[in-house]
Design a protein around this nucleic acid. Structure first.
Lengths: 242, 242
DNA sequence: TTCGATCTTTGATCTAAATCAAATTGGATG
DNA sequence: CATCCAATTTGATTTAGATCAAAGATCGAA
């Protein structure tokens, strides 16, 4: 199962300014140091099962995890993608209604429930930050409802790639042609955007054919024409309005 | 536009124990009385537009409102349904990314932003209640992602009806055969579950044909066989497990 | 370095739901 | 009460994406 990893000091943590601890001062970081443990998961490993009692809450430090729901006959739908700084677990919630799985190797910064919840209760900016993170997830879920309910296969694939561009750290450097790592297999992408892996593959091939994107290995994408990609999402009209 | 309505005293409010004010004491209710206004909207009227600056936050007192997103070419997807006690507006958010529309005649209990946010900051149980309401919406959004991404037309329609049963007040009395009011047109239902209105109509006719449900007028449904309806949702296996 | 497993691509065919097209119904309005 | 308009039902046809199928590519392990 999960192995322990060398703990990084909060002050040197890569997600320091985006995670739940974003607005903590030095004293508060010291408190967190005392209740935190690092845990690592290998790609493919289960992090949490649906219905399982949450023994910890956690921030994703590195890697990518998926949230997914499964119907009895095996159809599955991803309902979220956790990237570094995203949070697992909610105040007052003892369990979750989806499975959490490591898509790549993942390192979590885990907090023991009891002391963490005590800190949340006593530190308004921490509970405010949790609220912000929850509302961001709600916005993302609603954008995805539009994608799942109304977008075409092409629009779904384009929207997924654009989301990766927007959320990945690579766009900080922003060197063209933009290269980004694709943390999911075709099948996982399909489960995220409500398609089959064959359709995902076909749409990726079409976008490559049209020189909107390029790829040679399975784990990376190059964005050749971001404007064309954006148009292909269906979100904005030709003028880029909306 | 919205007309004002006679204000009901908080202590006699029908949503008193489920809304954001659920855990307020008498003093706190007095504070709320001072900052609240009732506003009514006719069926079909816009309550809020996407991007509009939120001048108030509000609880739904009566009626049903829809949250929806629209693509440039007119395809629309409902991303939420607001029933009595549901809340509009979030701490720290000045605008919303979807349209809010009255599906039936709607009465809102509106709070001025500034004093309400002050109260949220000073009253932990109110901000906790807001967090609970947001997390409930997040759970609902994720259930809907599974529906939109993976369910068949039949499963979608059955799930929608079952959700109405679960959330409507009628199930308090629970007299069989269960009758419930359908606050949406076929077209609105279609926009909620990612189908066309023709497909919704066909699936409703099929469920009627199979004597799972019955209906004569457009605005009501009778549940003849709740067990069959539940199986038709695809959520649970034949034993009702899950 | 080869083997085997998994992932990916691409082609052929099928199908669930969309689209197109009329009736028909029902509720609101004068 | 008659009229009208929007909502609904039902049928015929089309189509986007699923499913079925098979051939490559990639990668880790022996």
């Amino acid at each position: 199962m999960a192995s322990s990893t060398l703990k990084v000091k909060c002050s040197e943590c890569p997600i320091r300014h985006r995670a739940v601890c974003a607005r903590c001062d030095d004293d508060e970081l010291d408190m967190l140091e005392g209740m935190k443990t690092y845990r690592s998961f290998r790609a493919g490993e289960a992090i949490l099962w649906r219905g399982e009692n949450l023994l910890f809450v956690a921030s994703v430090v590195s890697g990518v995890a998926t949230l997914s729901k499964t119907l009895e006959d095996g159809r599955t739908q991803m309902v979220g993608l956790l990237l570094p700084s995203d949070f697992i677990g909610r105040p007052g919630r003892k369990e979750i209604d989806f499975d959490v799985t490591a898509a790549t190797d993942v390192t979590l910064c885990c907090f023991q429930r009891a002391p963490f919840e005590k800190m949340v209760d006593e530190t308004p900016h921490v509970s405010q930050r949790l609220m912000e993170l929850a509302l961001d997830e709600l916005d993302a879920a609603r954008d995805w409802m539009l994608l799942l309910g109304r977008k075409t296969a092409r629009e779904k694939v384009a929207t997924f790639i654009e989301m990766l561009v927007r959320r990945s750290d690579t766009n900080v450097t922003f060197s063209f042609p933009l290269t980004l790592s694709l943390p999911l297999t075709r099948n996982q992408v399909a489960n995220y955007i409500g398609l089959t892996f064959e359709t995902v593959s076909r749409q990726l091939s079409a976008l490559k054919q049209e020189q909107v994107i390029d790829f040679n290995d399975r784990r990376h994408l190059e964005i050749l024409d971001l404007a064309a990609l954006t148009i292909a999402t269906g979100d904005k009209d030709a003028d880029g309005f909306m």
